[in-house]
Design a binder for these strands. Structure first.
Lengths: 130, 130
DNA sequence: CCTTGACTTAGAGTAAACTTTAAATTCTAC
DNA sequence: GTAGAATTTAAAGTTTACTCTAAGTCAAGG
């Protein structure tokens, strides 16, 4: 069992964000101590692993909430969940491809401006020598 | 010369967004007709190409504004611009790497749930046969 | 016991990047 | 030269994903 602080350290999410995610339905049914303090289980950490994975690949909080809600509903939602994940996977692949395409342009620009910079600094030096 | 509508079509940005970018300093000195309508040149389109490239690779509007402002200041800002682009390039590379790592996990999950789904549907069919 | 620090809640506030509105002006085609 | 579509502005509104605040509750050390 882990306190919210423990889980914050383990996941890199702040305690505020963990509570927010819970409120938004990303994670549900976190146990509490007698006094009302959250007690996360290893299963909760596992779920948070998936949540972070989806979040870090650009899925919206709302869509993650939907996915986790389906998970809670059990096996009859397996088809919908697989469809969601497949679509998301295609999105991620497309996004990576797009980024790689843009990266080429950024690289080209870096080289272009580096060349210009060299020429400019050479020019400055020549001017200095005179 | 292109109207804001032409440029909207060419870039995929809305006219609203084009005005917003101008207000935020991403693009400056767009010419106007006598009546005050914007008239974009091919150079403006070129600039917008870079702006979209930076935006689509995750640079903030503020940082793009900074970059474009440096560009306007001329060659003495070349070093800073090269540094900005280099840093951004490293960011993009890191982000792509992270995405690829997460993509593996998503793929694993897709396969895992697909297997579960198949087993579940086979189970349903068996139950139907009885 | 009592202090101190972590945790609780609901709800307000923030930041980024648009997006919409409204009212006025301009361009274009008949 | 006029109707109607496109454009202009400033400013308010929206969405997403947090992030912070206030006021109170809980738990561990001295």
């Amino acid at each position: 069992m882990y306190s919210i602080r423990d889980v914050s350290r383990k996941t890199g999410l702040t305690a505020h964000t963990l509570r927010y995610y819970e409120k938004e339905g990303l994670l549900c049914g976190v146990e509490r101590t007698g006094g009302g303090f959250r007690q996360y289980t290893d299963d909760d950490l596992e779920s948070l692993g998936l949540i972070c994975c989806l979040k870090n690949t650009g899925m919206s909080v709302q869509d993650i909430a939907r996915f986790m809600e389906l998970t809670r509903q059990g096996d009859q939602t397996l088809r919908e969940r697989v469809e969601m994940l497949r679509r998301h996977r295609e999105d991620v692949i497309a996004r990576i491809g797009e980024m790689q395409k843009y990266l080429e342009k950024v690289t080209w620009k870096v080289n272009f401006f580096s060349g210009k910079l060299e020429a400019y600094e050479a020019g400055l030096q020549d001017a200095g020598k005179k």
